[in-house]
Nucleic acid binder design. Structure first.
Length: 588
RNA sequence: GGGGGCGUAGCUCAAUUGGUUAGAGUACCGGACUGUCGAUCCGGUGGUUGCGGGUUCGAUUCCCGUCGCCCUCGCCA
């Protein structure tokens, strides 16, 4: 139908007879002459309806409204002097209309794609077809396409094979809550949508496809966040005959390629690495935002000597006293502001309170709590925290885990409030040497930090018997700007070791057989050493696009309550459908 | 499940201590206008203040409940 798109006409095209198709973005009616900005995903072009084209044509153009779909034929002309629009790529030319067809009318849209003010997100989601017309959304959709293609090309060039794995699988109680799909053919039984293709990709390793990759849709029925959707996409990778270094090296190369091609950034390789313990000690979290400092400082040894019961008591109870130094922020936070920070960590992270000191011009630490400290001890705490006049010291006394959570939260919040970093900068790093196990708070014993197939570091294998908590895994997380952008492990391929780990996790032989017997079987038929990683595609695109919600990089996302405002999903189904599935709803 | 924020015209927002007919910009409709590009000018339509209840002489405003959207803790091997 069309000869050109709305984004490509230039002075070179002057004199050509062209046909454009698109949506009416704006129209400006001057009575005699009428301008229409025609828009498609390639750009906008100004179309002029002038009396020279005939009265009928101008009259027809007068009937145009926002978002009508039209076809226009006409001649490309240079714009008269002084009317060139430098804001448009096509702004040097215009199309003098000779023919107009309204391909389709449109209702008055609930909002206009070119509106300056963004409407509420619920309205955007309900009318996603309008929202997706917005240039910003189109830019993101295109960016996502390009990034996924780059990744596919990158892996393809390295000999990876993309294999599709089933969506209808088997529920395994570990990990997140499953989305279940009832079986009609086997009444009373259910498939589970994959939380990740983890087991299948390991099976593929056993089957000899030593370099596997898949753009894999994953499903987890857990509560949503700005960076979490119930269905999301992983760039899923698995390799055989490799170690953690090989995986990290390949992903290093991928990240550098993406940074170069998408952002024009030269990234120095290898990407820096930090151990899990170091991350927890310095930042209180296993995915720290390394774009700024304000590290956590431990003053437990000094706190133990204080009169101050809050401090001494915490240390005597086996806890810690740690804090952060918000440089120069003493004046930024009034007493009320500090009360807010206190409420924030008490309500959100279970901290008992927040102790603060403002550093005065003479270097002394001032605070309602100061009287509980010997001056020399206070000075020592100040030195430890590198206190300078104008600084605000914030300290939390609690169990180690609580100080981590509270100070991580404070650091994140203050980092943003005090603008301690440029949001446009990108920081890539690896967190490595994760613990194999975390204490199971509900049932006692241990739970897997990653999943039950994660291999311990070879040198830590004997710790499985003596000190499981000290045992480190061959696990690695890719962290970008404080987000976990990916994570992976080397898997256990040895039956004996697998049994040992199952034992620690409280998975007995019968249970293991029932849940993933097929994997255990496969591992006995010649499983190569293998491992892999999965990258969160939505988060990667979000970070590269400089956005802070993955909903903005997903064409049709769900709301926080996991509904689709456009389709109305999830919805009720017919009784007949339920009967066929053998499902009876309570109260029916 | 817990904490917090928001909900007023199609859209983005305002409305004094609880007080007269709930306003503005934009969109929309009508009119004028031959070079605009956020066109301009004139006129107009448009409201169950999310919904339900309560307090009050009087509620957009205060209280309770409920629904929706967002942020967050728990949760997310």
């Amino acid at each position: 139908m069309r000869t050109h798109t709305c984004g490509e006409l230039r002075l070179d095209n002057v004199g050509q007879e062209v046909t454009l198709c698109g949506w009416v973005d704006m129209y400006r009616d001057f009575g005699g002459v009428l301008f229409v900005d025609l828009r498609d995903r390639y750009g906008k072009t100004q179309v002029v309806f002038a009396p020279e084209g005939g009265k009928e044509l101008v009259d027809a153009a007068c009937a145009l409204r926002s978002e009508f779909v039209v076809l226009v034929r006409g001649k490309v002309a240079p714009r008269p002097e002084g009317t060139v629009n430098p804001k448009l790529d096509t702004g040097a030319v215009e199309v003098r209309a000779e023919h107009l067809e309204i391909l389709n009318k449109a209702l008055t849209p609930p909002f206009q794609p070119s509106a300056k003010e963004l409407p509420g997100e619920d309205l955007r989601l309900k009318h996603r077809y309008i929202d997706l017309r917005r240039p910003e959304m189109q830019r993101t959709v295109l960016l996502r396409h390009r990034m996924v293609k780059m990744m596919r090309d990158y892996f393809d060039a390295l000999g990876f094979v993309e294999v599709e794995t089933p969506m209808l699988g088997r529920s395994t109680p570990e990990g997140a809550r499953d989305y279940l799909v009832p079986s009609r053919v086997q009444p009373g039984t259910f498939y589970a949508l994959p939380q990740s293709p983890q087991l299948y990709k390991q099976i593929l390793m056993v089957a000899g496809y030593d370099r596997y990759v898949q753009v894999a849709r994953c499903f987890r029925d857990e509560d949503l966040r700005a960076d979490r959707q119930p269905e999301f996409t992983q760039m899923d990778v698995e390799m055989s005959f490799i170690n953690a270094e090989d995986i990290i090296g390949i992903i290093d190369g991928l990240v550098a390629r993406l940074a170069k091609d998408v952002l024009g950034l030269e990234i120095k390789l290898p990407l820096p690495r930090m151990s899990y313990d170091e991350a927890m000690n310095r930042f209180g979290h296993d995915a720290p935002d390394l774009r700024f400092g304000m590290e956590l400082i431990d003053v437990s040894d000094l706190a133990a000597k204080a009169e101050f019961k809050v401090f001494r008591g915490a240390v005597e109870a086996g806890g810690r006293v740690r804090g952060i130094n918000a440089k120069g922020a003493a004046d930024r936070y009034s007493r009320k502001g500090i009360d807010e920070l206190t409420a924030y960590i008490v309500e959100n992270f279970g901290a008992k309170g927040l102790v603060f000191f403002k550093v005065e011009s003479d270097g002394k630490l001032a605070s309602p709590s100061a009287k509980n400290f010997a001056p020399e001890l206070l000075a020592e705490i100040g030195r430890r925290m590198e206190a300078a006049p104008g600084d605000l010291l914030l300290l939390v006394a609690d169990k180690f885990e609580t100080t981590c959570k509270a100070l991580y939260g404070l650091r994140k919040r203050l980092g943003a409030e005090l603008k301690l970093y440029d949001p446009a900068t990108m920081n890539f790093s690896w967190i490595v040497e994760f613990p194999m196990f975390a204490p199971d708070t509900e049932e006692g014993g241990w739970t897997a930090m990653h999943h039950p197939f994660t291999a311990p570091r070879p040198q830590d294998r004997k710790l499985l018997e003596t000190d499981p908590q000290a045992c480190r895994a061959q696990a690695y997380d890719l962290v970008i700007n404080g987000y976990e952008a990916g994570g992976g492990t080397i898997r256990i391929h040895d039956q004996e070791l697998q049994q040992q780990v199952f034992g620690l996790l409280g998975i007995d032989a019968a249970k293991a057989r029932e849940r993933f017997g097929f994997l255990l079987d496969a591992l006995q038929y010649g499983a190569p050493p293998h491992g892999g990683i999965a990258l969160g595609v939505d988060r990667l695109v979000m970070l590269f696009a400089g956005l802070d919600s993955i909903r903005d990089v997903i064409a049709f996302p769900k709301t926080q309550r996991a509904t689709d405002l456009m389709t109305g999903a999830p919805g009720q189904v017919d009784d007949k459908q339920l009967r066929e599935l053998g499902i009876k709803l309570p109260g029916k």
